[in-house]
Design a protein around this nucleic acid. Structure first.
Lengths: 208, 208
DNA sequence: AAAAATACTGTACCGTTGGACAGAATATAA
DNA sequence: TTATATTCTGTCCAACGGTACAGTATTTTT
């Protein structure tokens, strides 16, 4: 079993060698002839043709893990849709890389904990809508909130602490908390961090 | 680490004991008090309240695998949506069970290969018609950090709590804090919120 | 050989956060 | 008119986040 790292430049990061002493660097062109069925291909999204390449490799029965510098749910979904078994940050730590390798080598899927819920949760809701009633765009997170809650959400999403939000909106910190609790509940997130990620990932323009 | 098998009748199949000598049977009522965070709960869909139970267990940080006598896409999606990490046939072979345990214990997802493509294939197209975004100037900020600091930064930026980062990188929470302090100082941000905003795209930032 | 950087862990402290209870005023809808 | 939704406020408390001291071990640089 060999770990191939396919990047635009064909470079091999020290992190990768540390994780897999057998790691091999490769350009996107000439790998397809040299791989074996139980190899793992770590394919960076800097390679323009990564979706097509993934498809071809997967068709041959090769395990593919996609490496991305800027992970997002759309790209993750695309990667998995093309047949990749993993989707992980290009700069992931050695321990994480090993873990990913272990998982995908055993027929598992690795997408990172926070992406998982988003990717699968999204697909579940999408399927629910199609089979049940349809309509309702999932992107409109903010529209689920009241006007005041939207104000709080936007302030928080721009990095403000509760105290700062309170000052901005001229209310007490307690009220900010109350709005936030409602926001978390409505959007199904656990804290302000997840809120930021949820809104940021849906391409909301916060402060142009 | 303990493997709990939760069924309607509280029975424990010999196959399960063969796979995990430490296997424990349980009814749906009284498990929640006795489980530890790194336990694996194998929950049969014969238990009527399995979705709600899954949700509660997952909220506590427990790894849940759903066992179904008649696997299908819809049930699989629901299981994963509730936070389960695995979905497998109740009568799965010993080797498969071991493999599933290995995968989910390492933050992976196990759903069976043919189910995965079906599940993800459809939902991807639903999200297809949305704007694609290219790679980010995030790398410049990251290059100021040491390798380990980068790993921590990435984990935090994806929404993980200190405790989760610690588990991912297999270090203590204290060490995560140490790295974070260094990161904040180097990048000139006051907390993880500002770090997210700094790394995630400087498009929408409020307080420079 | 000495210094600096890196990685890791410990205890203690304190501010922040979010939930658990709560309650109250106003406006809109049934 | 009784609900329901929205907005606002209160106290208490457990968990989390970040800093201030600390320290040790290893590697790299000077």
């Amino acid at each position: 079993m060999t770990n191939w790292f396919v990047t635009k430049n064909g470079d091999l990061k020290s992190r990768w060698v540390a994780a897999f002493p057998d790691a091999q660097a490769a350009l996107d062109l000439n790998i397809e002839s040299r791989i074996k069925a139980d190899d793992i291909i770590w394919l960076a999204t800097s390679v323009q043709v990564w979706p097509e390449l993934t498809q071809r490799l997967v068709a041959k029965g090769v395990t593919v893990v996609i490496l991305s510098y800027a992970p997002n749910d759309r790209e993750a979904l695309k990667a998995l849709d093309q047949g990749a078994r993993g989707y992980v940050h290009t700069l992931a730590a050695v321990d994480v890389l090993k873990q990913v390798a272990l998982v995908v080598a055993n027929q598992g899927v690795w997408v990172g904990q926070e992406l998982l819920s988003k990717v699968l949760g999204g697909s579940f809701k999408a399927l629910q809508q199609r089979t049940e009633q349809g309509a309702r765009p999932t992107a409109e997170c903010l529209s689920l909130l009241t006007e005041r809650e939207q104000s709080v959400a936007i302030a928080v999403t721009s990095g403000a602490a509760n105290k700062e939000v309170a000052r901005q909106l001229d209310i007490t910190e307690r009220t900010v908390k109350a709005h936030l609790s409602a926001i978390f509940k409505k959007l199904g997130v656990r804290d302000r961090l997840q809120l930021i990620l949820k809104l940021a990932n849906n391409d909301y323009r916060l402060n142009p």
